[in-house]
Design a protein around this nucleic acid. Structure first.
Lengths: 215, 215
DNA sequence: GTCTATAATCAGATAGAC
DNA sequence: GTCTATCTGATTATAGAC
């Protein structure tokens, strides 16, 4: 089957058709892989997820998987890059006219929604092999830094607005917000079955921003 | 070496010396095992901890370990029983005249201190084999329920005192407090190296009770 | 690039002597 | 109960044909 002839007929001549078409197939396949990895990471975590499982869910052989990603760690890293890209895209959509505090609230709500919908990968916070791979992944690190910079700017703005406690170091606030994306309270409340997802999110939003003390 | 003769000479006759002595040795050995398990669980988590490691750190053969505990899960469960016992003992020492809110604050501070000192086992919140073992362990479950009941009573008291937000379900408050014992914010701030343990604890105490909003 | 089949390794658990 | 030596199974990773 001459894919080159087909794609040549459909593609402007100045774009190298063959390469573009194959690259598209490659990326589509890799997107499918990452989607499965993302879901399994959210469901079971890094260690419990097996490469056999990933291959089976994608519907390809394990050896083929290793042609795309050289290790299990790289699979997880690719999923995290995807999450960072989604986060960056979401930050772009946050209403620019809202207050800094509202922007932050919007983002935290979004991350908790992802978590409750099983789309937030949960990595062990202290796996050294995975950490090494992640820190060596420039796409991930660049994304993380970009997200952190933008959130950090909003945090400082909210502090000078008098909306966020200025006595808290901005970095502590940032970590506190990040931690909502993997907060076990979300799963526990969900397991309890007494609350809808939307209620759970508002409860944790309240404890996060207003605290548990009465006001 | 006739341990029986030695212990007979040192022990009142009406107490079955041989059994008592052997039982003491057994318990002492098991305490040593649990201590190592506790430390490794705090350091690396359940999945990263290996039974070989436990045996090596205790200084006994792995087969001997399995004479005391039938599985890796039971090792972790024993460590958690120990934590529950420590928690119960600590609850007994909390000043009974303090306000319910102050009691809760004291307990949360204590758990975060344990975590920062590497004495708080960190279990994956969703490992099914471990969960099953834990839920089947009556010593653990009884301890957990006792602790939860006592904290729950303080939470409700604090709410009727007007100290804790009465709109929050008590169970959500309980989970929120429990979650401080495994809060990744603690490790991240510690890794940053900018704050002392005591400062880190007060920061997280503040975000937990007062929230990140300005007051 | 995809597959089947297989290596290589590691970790939980056990056998059997003492 | 403790040890050495071993089993068993699961899992990451690769070889080699197509």
């Amino acid at each position: 089957m001459d894919m080159n002839a087909i794609s040549s007929a459909l593609t402007p001549a100045k774009v190298p058709a063959k390469i573009s078409f194959k690259a598209q197939m490659l990326l589509a396949r890799e997107d499918a892989i990452i989607k499965v990895v993302n879901q399994l990471l959210a469901e079971k975590g890094f260690e419990a997820m097996t490469v056999d499982e990933v291959a089976a869910n994608v519907g390809i052989a394990k050896a083929s998987l290793y042609k795309h990603f050289p290790s299990k760690e790289d699979l997880a890293a690719a999923a995290m890059v995807g999450v960072m890209q989604r986060a960056q895209a979401f930050l772009d959509t946050v209403a620019p006219d809202a207050s800094a505090l509202d922007k932050l609230r919007t983002v935290v709500r979004w991350t908790m929604g992802l978590k409750l919908h099983g789309e937030m990968p949960s990595l062990p916070s202290q796996n050294s092999s995975l950490r090494t791979t992640l820190m060596a992944n420039t796409a991930y690190m660049d994304g993380l830094m970009d997200v952190s910079d933008r959130l950090g700017a909003w945090i400082e703005q909210a502090q000078s607005d008098g909306a966020i406690n200025p006595k808290l170091p901005a970095i502590a606030v940032l970590y506190t917000l990040y931690a909502r994306a993997c907060d076990p309270v979300l799963e526990f409340l969900k397991m309890g079955g007494l609350h809808e997802n939307a209620q759970i999110i508002e409860l944790v939003m309240s404890t996060c921003f207003e605290g548990i003390n009465a006001r």
